[in-house]
């Protein structure tokens, strides 16, 4: 029974991917990409990786889709291009080659891949949390996560350094929007905090919580309640930078206390992880909102 579901799921993923690539206009292509991301998220659930599924659905599909839609508004419609036969042949050969290498890698993989799981299982008692994904992300391999946050901050700074995007023209969203906001904004904060807390024992964590928080912030931004230009933008910038600052600060403090960078003091791991994750959640939410809103700092610029 589940095999039927899985085959249909795989076929749907391929079909939505094809639709995204061949859609006549950009908005339709992005819509197909959004649906594609949701089905990929579902396939991660089927593969037993709910953490990845949530991240894929919230960030990979939802927020990336929003960023793509936002970017596509500022672009000219795509010019009709004629693809020549040699181009097509080159694309087919490249794609077949990559697919072949990937298939070969997957076939070779099982012998080498089982080293990591027993190590995590053996040490999870020391990590302070019971969700192995959080244990790896915030304890065993916290260094990688710290660098991921730096990458996110670097992306934000890069966008800020480029020419400011034309101001988003906010349409009046009608009488139904304020009541919608009154339900959604508090719920997104509640859900975000829930996911953050849940991350220590079940699927969830800072990235998923940050994405949900960003959804709520975006809803406020669309309603005009939250402004990202003028003096109001400074707290958002402070939040965006805070994640890296708190993470680096915690790493250095741990170094001072235990002698090893990012090695939390024994027994207090959970408190350290939750503190860092709380800062990361706020930071990720603010960063993604600033990326979306186009970073018009300090009002009009030439």
């Amino acid at each position: 029974m589940m095999t039927v579901f899985d085959v249909m799921l795989a076929a749907t993923i391929l079909w939505t991917a094809w639709t995204a690539l061949t859609a006549p206009d950009r908005t339709a292509a992005i819509a197909a990409f959004l649906v594609f991301g949701l089905f990929v998220g579902l396939s991660w659930v089927r593969l037993g990786a709910p953490d990845v599924a949530m991240a894929e659905a919230a960030i990979g599909s939802g927020l990336t889709g929003a960023l793509l839609l936002r970017a596509s508004r500022g672009m000219t419609p795509p010019a009709p291009t004629r693809v020549t036969a040699p181009h097509r042949a080159a694309a087919v050969i490249t794609a077949a080659g990559v697919a072949g290498v990937l298939a070969w890698a997957v076939l070779v993989l099982p012998e080498a891949a089982v080293v990591y799981d027993p190590l995590v299982d053996a040490n999870i008692g020391d990590s302070g949390v019971s969700n192995p994904v959080t244990a790896v992300l915030l304890n065993f391999r916290a260094w990688d996560t710290l660098l991921e946050l730096v990458v996110l901050l670097a992306a934000l700074l890069l966008v800020a350094a480029l020419r400011p995007i034309r101001a988003a023209r906010m349409a009046d969203l009608g009488p139904l929007y304020p009541p919608f906001l009154r339900i959604m904004a508090p719920l997104s904060i509640f859900l975000s905090a829930h996911l953050l807390w849940l991350g220590t024992s079940d699927p969830g964590g800072a990235f998923q919580a940050g994405a949900v928080l960003c959804g709520g912030l975006l809803a406020l931004f669309f309603g005009g309640t939250l402004k990202t230009d003028g003096p109001d933008v400074m707290p958002l910038w402070a939040l965006a930078v805070m994640g890296v600052v708190v993470f680096v600060g915690a790493g250095l403090l741990a170094e001072a206390l235990t002698g090893t960078l990012l090695e939390y003091p024994d027994g207090a791991d959970k408190a350290w992880i939750l503190t860092i994750e709380s800062a990361l959640t706020l930071s990720i939410g603010a960063t993604l909102l600033l990326l979306f809103s186009g970073l018009r700092q300090g009002g009009a610029r030439p």
Binding site: G174, L176, M184, L187
Partner: peptide, 21 residues
């Protein structure tokens, strides 16, 4: 229950927004 409420609220609002646009 939360899922059902969220779908109802966001479905009604986005439907209204798309229609008015």
């Amino acid at each position: 229950g939360l899922t059902a409420i969220l779908v109802a609220v966001s479905g009604a609002t986005t439907g209204h927004l798309i229609a008015s646009a």
